[in-house]
Design a binder for these strands. Structure first.
Lengths: 259, 259
DNA sequence: TCGAATTTGTGCGTATGTATC
DNA sequence: GGATACATACGCACAAATTCG
């Protein structure tokens, strides 16, 4: 085993196992030989095996479970989070529920709504003053009882106060677009700023993902003309989700009219 | 140091250093005390210090450089990759160049163009048959001499063959939108499917990022009506980039007309 | 219920290699 | 060359979680 080619032993072992996962000799969910077994198979010390396994775990290929063993991580078909005017329709209702149902799974969510004041960051995104009243709603979304997405949304109460949709989930209509439509705020566009980073500890608990798994952190804002009517921080496991956007382009020859 | 609270020593050290990075006691680019120094400071063995440092490195907080030391990784303001009809304009020319220049840096790129045949995956995305002729162009994009983005694009030669824009970079106009406009293919929308994953070895070399850093892998397709006119695989460091989308919503009350 | 076996997690000591300064 | 610093690798021990008879 001793790396003649200059490649360290633990990398060779990792590549070997990685290849077996790739070609299917180690199928999804399969148990990987224990550290002691691998130690004998490759004739190295346990620390080398551990380094190899940690490398694979950090790449998301395997999950290590204390007391049980290590397993090939399922990489099933990714769920999709869709943004944009698919088929020219305004998505009323919950886009999340629609996407999950389309994948043949059961959508559910918990939420908690509370009136509070805008932090400077939120105020900046909403174009209001820090300290202004906002309605904050935190969501946890489930797909077949698995938590898959977290969201914290903020709506300026200057817009919704006293209307039937003041409370995001308790009113007669659901979904930001439809709710705002119903009070005369016609949403014209949405912006999203997305970064990928490793999950924070709180998010790891809520989403039940192993350490180091990357997540998408999305800052989404809905606009009615130049006025921001809702903004949200959304976190989804980048492992299980892919993002899908469909963006129409304006026809050529026209001049811009928005500032 | 010995974790009474059940938290392992290496985690406590990692959190301690992490906090120092957060609050600025260890500023960007600062050298972190060597493993031997930390070993004495915390009164633990070297392996514990190494575990802590590896954790921080895997989170992208520090970079370890053999023979030199470990350093706080710069997390400067992220560059932005913009998608959408910003300000109602069709972005002609290179959106990459525009974004980099907007950030006050110097854009450059290498490319290599070659005629080839469509793989099944590319054919599927372009709505053509596998084996059909396509023009493939591979790009490496630089911002201030730093490689930041890789791209491989495919255009069906059934569309461009014999036109002035058959060759993506050698024709009279640049940018997919403008080039297609010039031959009468008016691009109406673009779709993107984005996943985040850790960089493959080839990408790590090309982009010069440390092991385990996440990248965005984007499958982008431009459409003229229902016809796909270009598709590309784009890889950018999720570390240095954020993605920004602006998606207009169709006005309410209209019915869909695209299928 | 309980304990033994298995498996991964954490930690110690030591040695040697290799890159940088 | 020498000093320093990180990389790889061996050995050992015990802890904690799980499984199973």
């Amino acid at each position: 085993m001793q790396g003649k080619q200059g490649r360290p032993a633990y990398r060779q072992i990792a590549e070997d196992l990685s290849a077996q996962i790739e070609d299917g000799s180690l199928p999804e969910g399969a148990r990987i030989p224990s550290e002691s077994e691998l130690r004998e198979d490759y004739g190295v010390s346990r620390i080398v095996v551990r380094q190899a396994m940690e490398l694979l775990a950090s790449q998301g290929l395997i999950s290590k479970e204390r007391g049980r063993g290590s397993f090939v991580r399922p990489r099933g078909p990714k769920e999709t989070r869709i943004v944009g005017d698919f088929y020219g329709k305004r998505h009323t209702g919950s886009p999340f529920a629609a996407a999950v149902k389309a994948a043949g799974q059961r959508p559910e969510w918990d939420y908690q709504t509370r009136e509070t004041t805008a932090s400077p960051a939120v105020a900046e995104r909403l174009g209001i003053e820090a300290g202004d009243a906002v309605m904050r709603t935190t969501y946890t979304f489930f797909s077949d009882d698995q938590p898959v997405m977290l969201s914290t949304s903020y709506e300026p109460l200057a817009i919704t106060r006293g209307t039937p949709v003041e409370h995001p989930e308790a009113g007669p209509v659901t979904g930001v677009v439809a709710r705002m439509d119903s009070i005369g705020k016609v949403i014209t566009h949405v912006t999203e700023e997305t970064v990928a980073r490793s999950a924070r500890n709180m998010e790891r608990e809520s989403l039940d993902v192993p350490e180091g798994t990357p997540v998408f952190a999305i800052a989404r804002t809905y606009f009615a003309g130049d006025e921001a009517v809702e903004t949200a921080d959304i976190v989804v496991s980048a492992d299980r989700y892919k993002l899908k956007y469909r963006v129409p382009l304006p026809p050529p020859g026209e001049q811009p009219d928005s500032k």
